[in-house]
């Protein structure tokens, strides 16, 4: 057994054992971390591989949440199918969000996602016969084969299993020809298009995959919380997702997952700071961009290089590209 395999085994063991060692609230946080893990994967596909910034991922999250909830509540669709339904709905809207890619270049696409997010939130809010509008919408507990999953610990394990599948899929995706083409487009759009890579097609694929993953997250999220209201899917959430991705690290799937864990746990650690939380996120974001461009996921490596005289090339190779893009968006 290689050290890597041992490490992988231990990590998985810890992730599986965790809910049995802690109380209900921590189980809830674990479930949230796994749920955000899906968003992290989605951000990785779009931003890490595709180099595209979205200011509208809260909308895909909302669509997954509301979509699956409406499917279960109104149409009696079983929970697992409703989750898939939520992913499909979010994915379709991902394609719609990317449609401007057929016409516009660069950051206009990010602005377009922002527009879509605002429209989606407004429609969900106004369409109160379906979504409950201001009152919000009750979501039943998740159930599997007729059994209600009452315990958040068990629910977490189910989400974790799905997350592992998603990780496996995203790993294959990034190694696939499609994934390489997407990276090529990000790396040099001109040359990639000259090579015959269709920009619009690939960006649409990236958006669809990313939105669908985020939709799955939303579906799990709604069922965990038991209640949805449109106030929880604002621009601020979209920005938080971006922050989470950068802090975790854009360069790898590991970074995406760390980002998810960070986003779930940070509010608990920063609880006492209350309103200052957003400020702290902001500072952390800047600190990450300046000092740790590979995100938290590169922290072990950064520490290792600090203590070893031998200089290695950093494993997170492409984050700086995205960080540049991110800072351009601010302009």
């Amino acid at each position: 057994m290689t050290p890597k395999a041992i490490f992988a085994g231990l990590t998985l063991l810890a992730a599986v054992a965790a809910p049995f060692l802690v109380g209900p609230y921590a189980q809830y946080i674990l479930a949230m971390a796994a749920i955000y893990g899906f968003v992290g994967l989605g951000m990785y596909v779009l931003l890490g591989l595709g180099g595209q910034i979205s200011l509208g991922h809260a909308a895909f999250w909302a669509l997954g949440a509301y979509g699956s909830a409406v499917l279960t509540v109104r149409f009696g669709v079983p929970f697992p199918l409703a989750v898939i339904g939520g992913a499909v709905i979010a994915g379709v809207f991902g394609a719609i969000a990317a449609m401007p890619a057929l016409r516009v270049q660069g950051h206009y696409l990010a602005i377009a996602t922002l527009g879509l997010a605002i429209v989606v939130q407004q429609v969900l809010f106004q369409w109160d016969s379906v979504t409950g509008g201001r009152q919000g919408m009750l979501v039943p507990r998740p159930s599997l084969f007729g059994y209600e999953i009452d315990d958040d610990g068990h629910y977490y394990l189910i989400i974790l299993a799905c997350l592992l599948v998603a990780i496996w899929l995203v790993r294959n995706f990034q190694k696939s020809f499609l994934g390489i083409s997407l990276k090529a487009l990000r790396s040099s759009p001109i040359a990639a298009q000259a090579a015959g890579v269709g920009r619009a097609y690939h960006l649409i694929v990236a958006f669809v995959v990313s939105a669908a993953l985020t939709g799955v997250s939303g579906a799990f999220y709604g069922a965990l919380l038991g209640q949805l209201s449109t106030d929880s899917f604002t621009l601020l959430v979209s920005l938080d997702f971006l922050t989470m991705a950068v802090i975790g690290g854009l360069g790898s799937i590991g970074g995406a997952l760390v980002g998810g864990i960070f986003y779930a746990v940070a509010p608990e650690i920063l609880r006492d700071f209350q309103q200052a939380q957003q400020v702290i996120y902001g500072l952390l974001l800047i600190a990450c961009m300046r000092l740790l461009p590979g995100g938290l996921a590169s922290l072990p490596h950064a520490v290792a290089t600090l203590f070893s005289s031998r200089r290695k090339s950093p494993p997170e190779n492409n984050s700086s590209v995205e960080l540049e893009k991110l800072s351009e968006v601010g302009k």
Binding site: I180, K183, A184, R186, S187, S188, I190, A191, A192, A194, N317, N318, V321
Partner: peptide
């Protein structure tokens, strides 16, 4: 200006 895919 080459335009290679530097991340690949």
């Amino acid at each position: 200006g080459r335009q290679i895919f530097s991340d690949l």
